[in-house]
């Protein structure tokens, strides 16, 4: 961490703990990070919409209503 001259030692400790938490978050499995992002989207959407910016959290439980059979358990997709 960069030097923080003149900062209260308790604040330095808090900043170090926040940095540790970021490193821990960085090591989470990718799907858990995606879920965290969706939570962030939900939290941010209220504030952003109040500021006039129209955003929409991902609705990953949504299905393709026009083509519901596009993705089925028997057609999981693969990379050739």
């Amino acid at each position: 961490m960069e030097a923080m001259d003149g900062v209260n030692p308790e604040v330095v400790r808090i900043f170090a703990a926040k940095e540790d938490r970021r490193q821990t978050l960085a090591r989470l499995p990718f799907p858990e990070k995606v879920h965290a992002i969706i939570k962030l989207q939900e939290m941010a959407a209220t504030i952003l919409c109040a500021r006039g910016k129209m955003v929409r959290p991902w609705n990953v439980s949504a299905t393709n209503e026009k083509n519901p059979s596009a993705l089925t358990p028997t057609n999981p997709g693969r990379i050739v």
């Binding site: 490193q23 960085a26 989470l28 990070k33 993705l71 990379i79």
Partner: peptide, 28 residues
Amino acid sequence: NDLERDGVLTRYAIGGAMGATFYTEPVL
């Protein structure tokens, strides 16, 4: 994956903020 299998696209990969999130803390 289906689009790749069907030849609609030749190859794909996640980039941008979600790509970075694979390696870092979650980013909005």
